[in-house]
Design a protein around this nucleic acid. Sequence first.
DNA 1: ACCTCCATGTCAGTGACTGACATCAGCCTA
DNA 2: TAGGCTGATGTCAGTCACTGACATGGAGGT
Lengths: 185, 185
Amino acid sequence: MGRWEPNARGRLEEAALALYGERGYEQVTVAEIAARAGLTERTFFRHYADKREVLFAGSGLLREILVKGVAEAPASAAPIDVVAAALAGAGALLEERRELARARQVVIDANPELQEREVVKLATLATEVAGALRDRGVAEPAASLAAQTGIAVFRVAFESWVGDTGRRELPDIVRECFAELGTLI
Amino acid sequence: MGRWEPNARGRLEEAALALYGERGYEQVTVAEIAARAGLTERTFFRHYADKREVLFAGSGLLREILVKGVAEAPASAAPIDVVAAALAGAGALLEERRELARARQVVIDANPELQEREVVKLATLATEVAGALRDRGVAEPAASLAAQTGIAVFRVAFESWVGDTGRRELPDIVRECFAELGTLI
DNA sequence: ACCTCCATGTCAGTGACTGACATCAGCCTA
DNA sequence: TAGGCTGATGTCAGTCACTGACATGGAGGT
């Protein structure tokens, strides 16, 4: 085995979520998170660019699923349907990690700085989905419009899912919201 | 007259935009902005919550125009059309301040932290537009969907306007993008 | 046995941001 | 007109996020 305990990143993420949940994001110092993970402050910043990022490590996986989902959709599908299907797939991932996703969201909803980062992550996802659509041959501004709109719909669906007590599953809610968008326009 | 030069906020905003433009956001300290405005660092933070916010003071005005536009739309109009019209009105405001808006956007586009804040401001606008729609009797999730979608369209239109060399006017571009969204869905 | 790698530790610094208290022109009131 | 109150600003000391430079020592290869 290694010189140090394995999975430093995982320990940092777990420690951060726990401490943020217990005392609130602002009341926790990076040094405390690192100490709880058995590491030093300096090491925290080698793994995460800043104090917020430790909560958003999972968004890379979401990105992969979305981009892959868009890329692998049947060539005949309309852009907005491609996006809707990919987002339903991403919803399935979150559905699997329901507990974690909710605990995380409670922390984020309690702090404006974290909300800021969350919104940015979603905007980044939209940009990347638009790029994946262009790779399929979708022209601008249709690609950006479909991607931005799709992410906007996903935000609404996610919010509903997190607030819900728990029967309905996220992929279903996503599909319902897209259907409702169709009736709006 | 007062004990100090008037319009401290205006001087701070002007100094910040100039310095950010000259040397880049990260290379400028708050103390330098304050000095250029003939003030101290502490006073800067009495006017703006943080170093970024000085670039976003105008978003309050945009908010008022949007919310007012939504509230005063004819009762018969469909939610998405109400949002489109309000956003075209907001576009007219930016069209008036074209020079300032462009200089500001150049600075923002050069720095991720500022992009972060910008995205948050837009998301906040979306939330407030949704609230204004609900005040008109629009139910959820239609209100949030129309608002989020509308802001998404506005982002696309604004981007096109800023990148454009200058003939087309923002309100027109906004209306065109909404039209194109209609053909997409 | 030696050497290189690399995740981590250590330490000193910069700069954003905050709380507590001081200052003092203008205004209000007696 | 004297005196007190207000509010925008200054001053100062402090915390903490974040960074650069250098040290350390197991693991794995040669």
